[in-house]
């Protein structure tokens, strides 16, 4: 989205901390209607504070772009930034917030993934066989009486069909 009115830039404030120096560059699209670096500033090594960079006073553009680079092995923590600008042909200066991902002031509690110990007690059944509520018929070991009759022969010696000769001893 382009805008017809041009702004002139005067100051940049950066809320940061830096373990070593760094570089801040401001690019604009004027003159030439192409984004180009117009200002280069050195970020000092510092604890967290608002560092103010005074610009030339002639830097202008429809659009601006801010870039921050740490030097060497340094670390920069950037908490916020704003730019002091005046819209031409007006004469009112104002701060405009530069969109920087926010760092919350509050700490957030992050639960550790520890399995929860329940507050309630849980019944754990012991492996004892259950006693049933109902009575169960248990047959006694009595041999069953057969339903059928079975012939039982009497102990009578049968009469043979042919006579059996018997030797009778005779006195001699």
């Amino acid at each position: 989205m382009g805008f017809e009115r041009v702004a002139i830039f005067g100051l940049i404030d950066a809320d940061l901390e830096s373990t070593s120096t760094g570089t801040l560059t401001l690019s604009t699209d004027l003159p030439g209607n192409a984004m180009a670096v117009r200002e280069t500033k050195t970020i000092p090594a510092t604890g967290r504070r608002v560092v103010r960079f005074r610009l030339l006073g002639t830097t202008k553009g429809h659009l601006y772009k801010l870039k921050i680079v740490p030097t060497g092995s340094g670390v920069i923590r950037l908490y916020g930034a704003r730019i002091w600008a005046r819209v031409l042909p007006g004469n009112a200066w104002a701060w405009y917030v530069v969109p920087v991902p926010p760092t919350p002031e509050e700490w957030t509690a992050q639960p550790l993934p520890i399995p929860r110990t329940p507050e309630e007690w849980t019944a754990a059944r012991l492996p004892i066989p259950e006693t049933p509520e109902q009575w169960t018929a248990q047959p006694l070991p009595i041999p069953p009486t057969s339903e059928e009759w079975k012939p039982e022969p009497l102990p009578i010696k049968p009469t043979p069909a042919n006579p059996e000769w018997v030797n009778i001893e005779v006195d001699s």
Partner: peptide, 20 residues
């Protein structure tokens, strides 16, 4: 941290072109 720049990794912060 909103913006953490580590120089050893060549990190930098850069906005898009912004209109006021």
């Amino acid at each position: 941290i909103g913006v953490y720049l580590d120089g050893t990794l060549g990190e930098f912060f850069e906005t898009l072109p912004i209109s006021i």
